[in-house]
Design a binder for these strands. Structure first.
Length: 537
RNA sequence: GGGCCCGUAGCUCAGUCUGGCUAGAGCACCGGCCUUUUAAGCCGGGUGUCGCGGGUUCAAAUCCCGUCGGGCCCGCCA
């Protein structure tokens, strides 16, 4: 049997070769199709970090499919979750909805049927662009409403004592009396987090609606005292048992989970035990992964570093994010906009290896690189792009017109007619990246000429003086300026390199910079004239 | 108290799972070339106690044990 090098293939093998349940001595049942679940809580921000779960689940789907199995990828909107904070852009008066299921809250923007729907529908549409497998979507709210979970609620309630026994083994303080794994929605105010169950008796939960404190906001309870029937009334299972019920309901064989679930006391293992011992369904094969970091920080709305899927698609294709996530599973993936060009280079390198255009040290590494590239594709594998992203950014920063871009690329040898679309697409990705995320390379003009004065040679000073006169005498376009620079350098017999360097030195303080004519033309003319005169004096 | 990840060139990392050529890449850096692509290109240069200490082995960056440093995480939430 061939060695399995790629993590998704090894997960696939684990899924198909396991024989026994994890906690009990029972045989794994037959599955006519293998279902992998991915989901997202709607109370949070749907950024690209959430795609990690989905993309990785998709990779395992692909691996299984290629191994000859029928697969299904499902995405579940955890929309019975209560709203726990007021996100940016949402009116402060929505504070009254804190604690209410996101599906019961009106859309603050008024364009969808609910708060949840407003976030779910665009997100669900965009995630399909990042995966190869067709995703089937579900809503927990609908699941509960249509009674698909009633059976599991019943099972768990009937085995209440065993459930409590399991839960207790995972906690320091035992479960208080009157505990119910089912939490009702308050029949009076419609909130779900505020209903405190006081007792569970003869198939009914007795609750009172009390304040619940989230990190920042408090869900106000209405004080209502009520009785709910878990099999009839609206409500949901607690997280520790709901997950188990979800696995059983969709016959999930594998699901992704953040690395925080690896710890022995986490909800993953509690749910697994409940699923196996109470619901008779085997623990899925976990796909634990590290979280995405951006600039070494967690991605969060409060830090203002959130990247949405559509932001990503403006600067890079979906394949690139797939590649990023597929590279490694258990390794902190830190991303920053600054390193996007490097990610592109890495991707291009894998493409060249995939198409046999580049050699790699070991056979092992070669296989791994090919598999990684292949699984990161959406349909047919993209041919290696001859245009490095950093160069694309440079070209985009100087030229706007298609013809200018092509002629520049022809001269630099990055152009292939048969790949024109792919190449130009990259220039446009690079343009957005350059304009939105790379202000730091857009140059910092030095404030004080004295920083670099010593570095200027006699001939450079002469050159700058002449250039200053020319600039002040007439208002020229970037192209004309570029031409003048050559002419002046020739006239004064200053080597071109020295001439260009002197321009960058007195502006950016560095020996290099963007195409000089365009660059100077883009700066305030008065400033340029003053600076050149200063340099020459 | 416990778990996971990381520690390899100046920087960012690959290579570790599955031990095997002289430990690699990109960037940066140094030297050279380029009179109309000066954030570009071409040629040449590797700058290293693979965190540290043991062990296993013919062979260790890779496996095992220990240790130090950094990051993240262990709920009555989901």
């Amino acid at each position: 049997m061939e060695d399995v090098l790629f993590w998704a293939d090894s997960k696939a093998r684990k899924i198909t070769e396991r024989e026994k349940f994890h906690y009990i001595d029972k045989d794994i049942p037959e599955f006519d199709k293998l279902t992998i679940k991915t989901s997202a809580s709607i109370s949070g921000v749907l950024h690209i970090g959430r795609l990690s779960d989905t993309i990785r689940a998709d990779s395992v789907c692909i691996a299984l499919q290629e191994a000859g199995y029928d697969v299904e990828l499902i995405w579940v909107a955890e929309d019975m979750d209560p709203l726990r904070k007021i996100p940016e852009g949402v009116p402060q008066k929505f504070e009254e909805y804190i604690g209410m299921p996101v599906t019961s809250i009106p859309d603050p923007w008024g364009c969808h049927s609910s708060y949840a729907e407003h976030h779910v529908s665009p997100y669900f549409e965009v995630i399909q662009e990042f995966v190869r497998t067709d995703i089937k979507g579900y809503s927990m709210r609908e699941e509960y409403t249509s009674g698909n979970f009633t059976h599991y609620i019943k099972e768990i309630l009937e085995n209440q004592n065993q459930a409590i026994e399991i839960l207790n083994r995972y906690r320091q303080k035992p479960i208080p009396q009157g505990y119910s794994p089912f939490v009702p929605i308050c029949e009076n105010c419609g909130k779900i987090i505020t209903t405190r169950v006081d007792k569970y008796e003869e198939g009914k939960v007795y609750y009172s609606c009390q304040d619940y404190k989230f990190e920042k906001y408090t869900a106000k309870g209405c004080g209502h005292i009520g009785i709910a029937d878990p099999l009839k009334d609206m409500g949901k299972l607690m997280w520790k048992s709901e997950w188990a019920a979800q696995w059983a309901r969709w016959r999930v064989v594998s699901e992704g989970a953040g690395k925080e679930y690896i710890v022995p006391m986490s909800a993953w293992w509690v749910n697994s035990e409940i699923a196996e011992k109470i619901l008779g369904f085997p623990m899925p094969v976990p796909i634990f992964y590290e979280h995405l970091m951006i600039n070494g920080e967690k991605m969060s709305a409060s830090l203002g570093n959130v990247v949405y899927p559509k932001d990503w698609l403006e600067v890079a294709p979906a394949q690139l994010l797939r590649f990023f996530y597929n590279k490694k599973l258990m390794k902190t993936r830190s991303f920053s906009w600054q390193e996007l060009p490097r990610l592109y280079d890495d991707y291009d390198n894998h493409a060249r290896v995939y198409f046999d255009l580049e050699k790699v040290g070991s056979e092992k590494e070669l296989k791994h690189m090919r598999r990684l590239y292949e699984i990161s594709q959406l349909d047919t594998a993209e041919k290696p792009n001859p245009l490095p992203f950093s160069h694309a950014a440079m070209v985009a920063s100087v030229y706007k017109e298609k013809d200018d871009i092509i002629s520049s690329l022809e001269k630099s040898g990055h152009y292939r007619e048969e790949m024109e679309e792919y190449i130009l697409r990259r220039v446009e990705y690079a343009r957005v990246w350059f304009e939105k995320y790379a202000p730091e390379i857009k140059s910092f003009l030095i404030d004080d000429l004295n920083e670099v004065r010593e570095k200027l040679s006699e001939e450079q000073i002469r050159f700058l003086g002449k250039l200053g006169k020319v600039v002040s005498s007439s208002d020229m376009s970037g192209e004309e300026l570029q031409q003048k620079i050559y002419e002046i350098a020739q006239e004064l017999e200053v080597p071109l390199k020295a001439a260009f360097q002197s321009i960058y030195l007195v502006t950016l303080g560095k020996a290099y910079g963007p195409k000089a004519g365009m660059f100077l033309a883009s700066l305030p003319r008065k400033w340029v004239i003053k600076r050149l005169e200063e340099a020459a004096s």
